[in-house]
Write a protein that binds this DNA or RNA. Structure first.
Lengths: 134, 134
DNA sequence: CTAGTTGCAAAGAGTTTGCATGGCG
DNA sequence: CGCCATGCAAACTCTTTGCAACTAG
């Protein structure tokens, strides 16, 4: 898709690499990079391309209308199932083998083939559960 | 929250009851009810209220920017895990017991407490898998 | 050089809100 | 009757797009 590696694209990719798995809005990314780095529209256009390449996923956050983008780093995320904590907002990874076992179980029982890259489990992480108990 | 049961509210609730679990946009609902039934803004206002009461969930569909609403009928959905097919768009329910087993497994392995009412598994349903094979 | 990219500003799409009118209880 | 809800249209927010200037290869 992308033929040229422009200055803007480099900065964006660099930023995203350092923030893999985080839910970021286009505006947040543009702000983080600074107005001199690249325009908002360039952010949108690059995000769209990354999405087309499957390196990025669109997601919604809470009950907001804004679109959030999540960079899926090939190495750290391959095959992992994503767990998102509603309290602290952090994303966790479930080991690929364990995730496959679970999803295979769903396939056997329901005849439904779950797609790991599109699915996110929402709940409360271990850390936040402890806080709650106190 | 809602103090009066207006004609519009009745029509809306009646429609939603017959379409529990479906992903519907505000516009689709307004169109289905007809322009005489209620205005688009009334649809939005009522949906917001239902959301506040926990009877409705916001969701995003595919990679669209539109917000979709899903009516969670207390009886048919309690405890069930939702499975959403990316091909046909239909939503399926996974039996409560089976779902609990799976999610308990996640809790044990990862220390992560999954919330069934917020989680949706995306993938391809049995019917669409067969079509694909042909 | 040439085609892909960028910035800016204008256009779109969807959702929310202000205000006067109307209707439930 | 009083107050909540509705309808309409304007206001908003976020995202996309047109176009001329720019730049990577």
């Amino acid at each position: 898709m992308s033929k040229y590696m422009t200055r803007q694209r480099k900065v964006l990719l660099s930023y995203l690499s350092g923030h893999a798995d985080e839910l970021l809005s286009a505006q947040e990314i543009a702000d983080a990079l600074g107005p001199e780095a690249m325009s908002l529209s360039a952010v949108y256009r690059n995000l769209s391309e990354l999405e087309g390449e499957g390196k990025l996923r669109r997601a919604s956050k809470g009950n907001q209308r804004e679109i959030y983008y999540q960079y899926i780093d090939a190495e750290s995320c391959k095959g992992a199932l994503h767990l998102s904590c509603k309290k602290c907002g952090k994303t966790f990874h479930m080991e690929p083998e364990a995730a496959c076992q679970l999803l295979d179980a769903v396939a056997r029982m329901e005849g439904f083939a779950v797609d790991k890259s599109d699915t996110v489990l929402y709940g409360v992480c271990g850390g936040c559960q402890e806080e709650k108990e106190r």
